[in-house]
Design a protein around this nucleic acid. Structure first.
Lengths: 246, 246
DNA sequence: GGAATAGTGTCTGTGAGACAGTATAGG
DNA sequence: CCTATACTGTCTCACAGACACTATTCC
């Protein structure tokens, strides 16, 4: 009963949305394309799936090749798959988007084995027109950022933006930067300290340039934040949105 | 820098997890495979992506061909993509899983153009060993059901299990069946009636065999349920789970 | 009247939002 | 002392969980 005639064979790529918080901005790792199509345009790092590889393995490999980051040590999560027939002029290409979250790491210098990937403020690409990025990458970036914003509400992934040791203020700064608005420091402190398994005190302290030293923490074992820390209703997008990207 | 040598070309399939609530059970639509591999085994409906098709279009088409259901009228949502190198003995096959939610609809009879798809209690496949279903479909089904359970918490999709008109009791029955435990009728009623945009009263009533008639509602425009209706902590899986399927 | 289902009211504890105050560092 | 940052305390309101009562139908 399954008609086998117009079956499709497609190339499969894995594209990465690598986010970090840097210079008080939500930034994304972009590369400049060195060949057609979209030569010279900015794009998400990514590449073709290879023989014997799982999707996650491909994501980690591409991350290393194109950005020099060690994906096996980052938060890495599959997001959504894009397969519109005309999304790549070269032919039928199915792309699985992955979200990676990293602390503010130094990138290897351009000219090494890694491509010249650069941290870039995500804001303009979220608001601006789609053709600021190659292919449908603007759409993919928007979906990924919305996913990251939602995940901060329900999970403890915000710690993935932080170094191994961090303060409550560091963590709050992540929330404020990703969500794009200020969060009450007192209520935030009470919430994250009270959430079992979110933070583990290391006993150490960090001295700021000025002011009282802050206690340092490591991530706890909990992955879900329950009850969640919901964004203010009027500060996120329209209240009526489908559950996932279409 | 992108090495093009061991690139992969893969077949792309869309597999569907179609859920309904039927006979006080969470049920899933399964087909019996008519050919190798896994001939005679039960499997999720699905099939190959075709020329010029988007993923959603393919999902709707397969749904019609294999089950006779009209996918364009159901809740349909992309879930996750599976691409382990050995997941299909025929070669490299990448599968995008879709979740469909339907009311308790009558299926077309076997022998028509549609395959003999049958509603089957999902429970045994969630608990049992993986080889009760073809390929990695048991894994896909588990991921989908977990996703559906979570969605009931944060969205209004529970209405997708109901007919056009339904009572608050019908809706509560969906929650109880999908979650697998009883929900307090009074608190549930207060919650869903109070949530703006969840339910729209039709003004009509439905007479049960015995007891007071119940008011009928239609789905409202709201897609997100805010604040969410969270499951009891001790009645769902382990509290420490990754945000999405790996 | 009884039985069964639909719907409302009330109390209580938890937790979020708002805001004031205390603690500890450097200068 | 002042300033800046870290952290704690308190009040109020919204809401979830628990439970009792009233309402409307068929018999």
């Amino acid at each position: 009963m399954t008609k086998q005639r117009p079956r499709i064979v497609a190339s499969v790529t894995v594209d990465l949305v690598v986010l970090t918080v840097r210079d008080d901005q939500l930034q994304v790792l972009l590369i400049e394309r060195g060949k057609e199509p979209f030569l010279g345009h900015r794009a998400l790092p990514g590449g073709f799936l290879r023989e014997g590889e799982d999707l996650r393995q491909a994501a980690i490999r591409e991350l290393g090749e194109e950005t020099g980051l060690d994906g096996s040590r980052l938060h890495l999560e599959q997001l959504h798959t894009y397969a519109a027939p005309d999304r790549d002029p070269r032919g039928r290409v199915v792309t699985i988007a992955y979200l990676a979250i990293a602390p503010d790491l130094p990138l290897p210098h351009a000219g090494t084995d890694a491509r010249h990937a650069v941290w870039t403020a995500a804001g303009p690409y979220l608001e601006g027109p789609d053709d600021l990025l190659a292919f449908d990458h603007a759409r993919i970036l928007r979906d990924a950022v919305e996913q990251a914003r939602t995940q901060l509400e329900y999970t403890t992934v915000a710690t993935a933006f932080c170094e191994e040791q961090f303060t409550v203020s560091d963590l709050r700064h992540v929330y404020e930067t990703v969500w794009g608005y200020r969060v009450d420091p007192r209520n935030f402190h009470r919430k994250v300290i009270g959430a079992a398994g979110f933070l583990v005190p290391t006993g150490e302290r960090r001295l700021p340039d000025l002011g009282r030293p802050a206690a340092l923490y490591r991530r706890g074992q909990a992955r879900l934040l329950n009850p969640p820390m919901l964004r203010a209703e009027d500060k996120r997008g329209p209240g009526i949105t489908p559950a996932g990207p279409a």
